[in-house]
Design a protein around this nucleic acid. Structure first.
Lengths: 193, 193
DNA sequence: CAAGTTAATTACCGTTCGGTACATAACAGC
DNA sequence: GCTGTTATGTACCGAACGGTAATTAACTTG
């Protein structure tokens, strides 16, 4: 270590994440990245590798924060039904308050890259599985507490909640009337009864 | 009309559709298109306009066929529950038998282009709405026939079925164990009871 | 068969792409 | 303050991008 970095690696990665998240992999150029990250191309390559490695680092950062977001909402002490309901409502509210809704970076990557790049197929599948497990634990907790009926198939329900969240997130990309989305959330919540 | 076209416009558009469907807009180059369509760039421009217009034509073709596929399944004379169930199962089966599952071209476009291009936001939203109406009519038919319970909120249920289909289609892009998907289908079907 | 019109082919346009060689600048240790 | 090492900025690389001008070929009509 003789000359220190003049930029903060994590701040730069955060900027890259936001850009890839909003525009996707192909539509984001290195020129866009240098502008947004505030550093030149050789610095990017020295710190993160090539474009695809930078993208993967950005996605991993997103996935980590996204998982934390889910844990915070679902592993709270309150009612299980309420926690799940609130999580869904918050995701919807965020999408509609943000003018240029980026949706979910992981979902965007599943659509754009997973079918052609095994590394992203695996990465996104594992995150999806992780979210399912968090839902599963939450449902089991609700069953033990007597809040959810014991005959509920926890695994199947957890899967379905993840499927519904993916569907809602993607649907909102075309900005449908909010009524549609809110109605769907309420309908999915019936599965908890 | 003095010199006739040497290629069939619809065959060429079909090729373009398959390519855009599989690779998306940005990742498909004009060079890819000329190879696959079997015609040169000037012919593409003469027949379809620029890349984005060709993409839109391809998407419109897909949407038209996709809508027909849904109508055929849902407006059949048989049981409503069975028709919906079969539709879901067929979509899942197709995704898993195809090695390189392209998913749904319309959904892919919602994710890649809708947030940045109003024309595709509108186009995909309208198709989504159209599918919802087909589901709605099917559900109403089931209610009138006494197959579905009268207290069911048909609009909300139709929305939710579309949301679930989107979620399933996107989820399958990361090739999860099929058990997850099948379980979700069965769980969603509970909403019809 | 000649004239007029349109399609196809070739070759090319300027621009931007992802990526890098090279020179310069900033630090640590002696 | 010198030396060695690493980071930065500049300038550039070949390749590929989307798109087009210009030529050649194929047909219909008179």
């Amino acid at each position: 270590m003789v000359r220190p970095r003049e930029f903060q690696e994590d701040k730069a990665l955060e900027k890259a994440m936001l850009l890839f998240w909003e525009k996707g992999y192909e539509a984001t150029s290195l020129s866009d990245l240098t502008t947004s990250m505030g550093i030149q191309k050789p610095s990017i390559y020295a710190a993160f590798g090539d474009k695809k490695e930078l993208f993967e680092a950005a996605l991993r950062k997103y996935i980590h924060e996204h998982a934390t977001f889910f844990r915070r909402h679902l592993q709270s002490g309150s009612s299980v039904k309420e926690a799940i309901h609130t999580l869904f409502q918050e995701i919807v509210a965020q999408a509609y308050q943000d003018d240029r809704s980026r949706g979910c970076f992981c979902i965007n990557t599943m659509v754009e890259l997973a079918p052609h790049e095994p590394r992203f197929e695996v990465l996104t599948r594992e995150h999806q599985l992780y979210l399912t497990v968090i839902f599963l634990e939450t449902i089991e907790r609700g069953k033990k507490a007597g809040e959810l009926q014991p005959h509920i198939n926890a695994k199947a329900l957890a899967n379905t909640l993840v499927v519904s969240l993916i569907g809602l997130t993607v649907m909102m990309k075309s900005r449908p009337d909010r009524t549609f989305v809110d109605q769907s959330v309420e309908t999915v919540m019936q599965l908890l009864d």
